[in-house]
Design a protein around this nucleic acid. Structure first.
Lengths: 126, 126
DNA sequence: CAGGATCCTTGAGGATACTG
DNA sequence: CAGTATCCTCAAGGATCCTG
């Protein structure tokens, strides 16, 4: 297995690295909560508590966790107002907004095919 | 809580039902493996074993499980050839292909912002 | 070959309490 | 209010074995 690293050109290695990174990012982002958070943010700026109310069913922990992940990947910007009590606001960055558009499309898809899917489920139910 | 069902018109109830269904479908579909399977299928027809090779890292169990789910929702068609050994082929249906387009967009997004994200991660690393 | 069934482990994720 | 830390539970998911 170790010998594998000697196969292929350096360019190949770069491609593999980019691929594995892309894969990692995809895995980060392709999850229910992350996508729902992005969708909820939209063009708005929301506080932590507003976001928790907006994203129905999300737990305190999941919200924090996903927000950190999204921040780390540069999809949301986190702005802390040093007041008391603290006020923390989240906004989509440009990459975040770009991703949001594809999420929108996915939501549209869901609604467009609601009927198909419901019917299919009934058929399958047998 | 039970009294809740008396509030709102029947039309409201329909909307809520559709929403919860949409939400459920979204949760089904917005997961790593489902999206990777859809992406792997693309325009092709693949056998179970081909799919397992194609979707890197997926386990036997996850593959079966997600394929069943996708079939149930009518996103993939499952065709069994009654030969021995059996031959089972999976193909995206029309709704499946429609969803695939948004997945494609998501993949494009991933690659377009690879740099941004990598940079953001380094910054965040602190 | 496709895929169900079973067992087993790990970690996702909830609830709660505590801090700045 | 926002966030971290801790504990605890249950289910996601892997490995393995078995069948048509």
């Amino acid at each position: 297995m170790v010998t594998k690293q000697f196969k292929g050109s350096p360019a190949d290695a770069d491609l593999r690295r980019a691929d594995s990174l892309a894969r990692e990012i995809f895995s980060d982002v392709a999850n229910k909560w992350a996508l729902l958070i992005i969708e909820a943010l939209g063009e708005r700026t929301l506080r932590f508590s507003e976001l928790r109310d907006e994203v129905e069913g999300v737990s305190h922990k999941m919200l924090t966790q996903n927000l950190r992940m999204l921040e780390r990947n540069g999809l949301v910007e986190r702005k802390v107002h040093p007041t008391v009590p603290p006020r923390v606001e989240y906004t989509l960055t440009e990459p975040g907004r770009a991703l949001r558009e594809t999420v929108d499309t996915m939501c549209d898809w869901t609604h467009r095919y609601l009927g198909h899917i419901e019917a299919s489920r009934r058929r399958f139910g047998a």
